[in-house]
Simulated assay, not measured.
Amino acid sequence: MPMIRALCTDAGKDLTEYSRWLWRAGIAHRISEEAGQQVLWLADESAVDFAKTALEAFERGELETEGGQQPTLDIDSSGVFGMLIKHPVTIALIALTAGVAILSRFGADPAWVHWLSFSDFELVAGYPYFLPLSQSLDAGQWWRFLTPVFLHFSGLHLVFNMLWLLILGGRIEQYRGGLFLLLLVVVIGITSNLTQYLFSIDHPLFGGFSGVVYGLLGFCWIYSYYLPSAGLAQPRAVIGFMVGWLLVCFTGILEVVGFGAIANAAHTAGLVSGCVLGGIYGYSRRQQRMREES
């Protein structure tokens, strides 16, 4: 595979930690020596800016590693088994969501939807009659604030969301840990569901992981603004595509062409809440580093 000459640096620098960090970030590369300099070669041109930012952070002593340990390349951790070992929470969330989709027959089984929807309902002449939310909460059904994220009403809807969960959730779990990812999913999920409920209170039947996916994107986006070397940065093309897709959803054209109703309020609330969480956490982490260095 032809490789791209990305950058050069002094031959006297020990780039072992930097190289390991790049491998853990999934960036294929090699380092050679030429004319008294070390040259970094990359397999993917889109990773050049990311590698340069990481090198600058490495030279400042700010390259973030997890648990204080140096990142290493585990050549045996490829494939599905390796993904399960590296990202157990992400894989578990995908398996749970896919399981609910199959058992609920993509929302066609009212028994499953009845238990997982934000508002409980009864079928009257084949149509849902929604019960007051307070009635469900009085019965202790607090799970309804979160469980709509596991409902999906088409295979395309499920696959789209799970692919993004694998990409974004897997990256967050790799660098910040599974419990941190789970906390983000819960907070963003509840926020996006509650917002969607307020905007569809007359017919509060909605579902999908999209709001959480947008929240994870927002978290990575803003967190990386404060800590570019943290391993969560996403390509501008990815952010542009997702924000563009959100704007297209607002036009209503997707409903016209047969995609069904779009939970725009959940998507927006998810993105905003993820950005806020990323900003708070990223800023606090950067301030902590500055205090430690001073």
Results as ranks from 00 to 15, higher is better:
1 M>G: 12
4 I>M: 03
6 A>S: 15
7 L>N: 04
7 L>W: 05
7 L>M: 10
12 G>Y: 15
13 K>N: 05
18 Y>T: 04
22 L>S: 01
24 R>N: 11
25 A>Q: 06
33 E>V: 04
33 E>H: 07
33 E>I: 03
38 Q>E: 05
38 Q>V: 00
42 L>T: 14
43 A>S: 10
46 S>F: 13
48 V>L: 13
49 D>M: 09
52 K>N: 15
53 T>Q: 06
54 A>Y: 10
56 E>L: 10
58 F>N: 03
61 G>N: 12
62 E>R: 02
64 E>N: 13
66 E>C: 11
81 F>E: 06
91 I>T: 07
93 L>S: 03
93 L>K: 00
97 T>S: 09
98 A>N: 01
99 G>W: 00
100 V>N: 00
100 V>E: 01
101 A>I: 04
103 L>P: 03
104 S>V: 03
105 R>A: 12
109 D>L: 02
109 D>A: 02
110 P>R: 01
118 F>A: 01
120 D>M: 06
121 F>E: 11
122 E>S: 02
124 V>T: 14
125 A>K: 02
126 G>F: 13
126 G>K: 11
126 G>L: 15
129 Y>Q: 02
133 L>Y: 07
136 S>L: 12
140 G>T: 11
141 Q>K: 09
141 Q>E: 15
145 F>I: 04
147 T>G: 06
151 L>D: 04
154 S>C: 05
155 G>C: 13
155 G>T: 14
156 L>C: 12
159 V>P: 11
162 M>T: 09
167 I>N: 00
169 G>E: 10
171 R>F: 07
171 R>N: 05
173 E>C: 13
177 G>E: 02
177 G>L: 01
181 L>G: 04
183 L>V: 11
188 I>A: 07
190 I>V: 12
191 T>G: 05
193 N>A: 12
196 Q>Y: 02
196 Q>I: 06
202 D>S: 10
203 H>N: 05
207 G>P: 02
211 G>K: 00
212 V>A: 08
213 V>C: 07
214 Y>C: 00
220 C>Q: 02
221 W>G: 00
223 Y>S: 01
223 Y>E: 00
223 Y>N: 01
224 S>F: 11
227 L>T: 05
229 S>D: 06
234 Q>K: 08
236 R>E: 11
238 V>S: 08
238 V>N: 08
238 V>Q: 06
249 C>W: 08
251 T>N: 05
256 V>K: 13
259 F>V: 08
259 F>T: 14
261 A>Y: 10
261 A>V: 14
262 I>P: 03
265 A>V: 13
271 L>A: 13
272 V>K: 03
273 S>R: 03
274 G>K: 06
277 L>R: 02
279 G>C: 15
283 Y>E: 14
286 R>F: 14
289 R>Q: 11
289 R>H: 06
290 M>H: 02
292 E>G: 09
